[in-house]
Structures are given as structure tokens and as C-alpha cells.
Design a protein around this nucleic acid. Structure first.
Lengths: 99, 99
DNA sequence: TCCATATTTCCAAGATTATCAAAATGTTCC
DNA sequence: GGAACATTTTGATAATCTTGGAAATATGGA
């Protein structure tokens, strides 16, 4: 993972609403949730929710699939794993194992 | 770690200059670096460097100590560990171990 | 104390991000 | 095709973050 991608992923999570959205999607698992459901549960207007989902999507932290007339977003665990690996490799002590 | 603290730490790292500064401090280990040295190495003006260090400090990702007439900043591995633990606990699949 | 050096604070642009109503787009079902 | 619903884009405004020069503050040594 490149530094810029890491900044992208960190930025996506560095916002209270988006971190909450992402955590909810993580708890929900592969089942996922539609923007409409997320919008209602989190009390965030559709346009704002769409903006946040796009941000998470661009960061590679969520995936989406169409299902009937809805679109379902789910957490992308692989993307998250990539970010955590980046942090472990680049932001933690190498030899000491301090972190 | 509270959600707000996590957002704070993520925000601190979600900026290219600061992520670079932090990674450099990680590589440097306990020896650390002064704002002046960081400023010169990274070609960032002192005032800007000070701003970024304050941000990292507020996020609990760096510590500082005075040494002679300089102040030495070092990566706070414990703070980083706390952030990674938060991500592992809250942003990864719980049972599947997907991430 | 006074000077040289190191760092931070102040402050004012400039740049980016967040919010959300309204309009546009896409999808299903009849 | 058209109605009904779901989501995204547009566009405008507000809020927040970044940058860096200039001034202020702090430290150590002569």
C-alpha cells in the first residue's frame, strides 16, 4: 500500500459519521445495508450519506452490490486489513516489537 | 479508546506531511528528532512543523522531552498500539477473523 | 544580564471538507 | 411507457484544516 492510499483510507475513517457508518457495516457483516437504511438508522440525510459512502468506497473500505432496487454496502475487510498491515509495517517499531 | 479519540488519532495520521513525519519518528525510535531537524530534513517551515507536531501530540502519537536547548520528539508506540487495537476491535470482523 | 539559538504562538490567507435541499439518474413492476 | 421508489449528482454555504511569515517565548552559555 502506497502512502497516498494510506492517507486516503485514514482520511475516510477520520470523520465521526463515517467511522460510525463503517463500524455499523462491520457489525452487519456480509449482509450489508442500503444507503436508505443507513440514512434512517443514523439520522443522516440521504445526500450526506451518499457523500460519505462514496468517500469510504473511494478509500477501498466498502464494497457495494445492487440488490433489487436497492444498493447494498458492506465493509471491505480486505481493504481494512491492508490499512492495518500498512500501519503495523510503517508506524510501529520494527525490531523492538513495541507495537 | 473512545470513538472521538480514535477520530483524533486517525485525523492526525490522515495528512501526508504528518504521516511522513510520524513514520520518520518511528524509524528513528527512542532517539527522536527535534523540530529543527525535522524541519530541515523534510523541508517544511518551522511554524508548519510545529503545527503538525502539536497535532500529533494532541492525538497521543508522539511524546516530547527537552534536551539541552532543543526539544526532542519521538513516536509514542503505546498510543499507536491503542489506535491499532481500536481498529482491530471495532473495524474488523469479530467472529470470522476476516481481518 | 545579554546574545544566539530553538521552538511556539499569532494571525491572515488559501485550500479542502462537510452538509443538505433540489434536481437528475437509475431500477422495478404494472 | 409511466408511476413509485432508491440513490446519486449538483451546487451553494458553512465549517474546518493547512500554510507560513512575523512576532513572542524559552533556554543555555558567555
Amino acid at each position: 500500500m502506497e502512502t497516498k492510499d494510506a492517507v486516503g483510507a485514514l482520511s475516510a475513517l477520520a470523520q465521526e459519521s463515517r467511522l460510525d457508518i463503517f463500524r455499523l457495516l462491520v457489525r452487519r457483516g456480509p449482509l450489508g445495508l442500503s444507503p436508505g437504511e443507513l440514512s434512517e438508522v443514523m439520522e443522516i440525510p440521504p445526500a450526506t450519506m451518499s457523500f460519505h459512502l462514496k468517500e469510504l468506497s473511494r478509500a477501498g473500505l466498502v464494497t457495494s452490490r445492487r440488490e433489487g432496487r436497492s444498493i447494498i454496502y458492506s465493509a471491505d475487510f480486505e481493504g481494512m486489513r491492508t490499512l492495518i498491515d500498512f500501519l503495523l509495517e510503517n508506524c510501529c517499531s520494527e525490531n523492538g516489537g513495541t507495537c
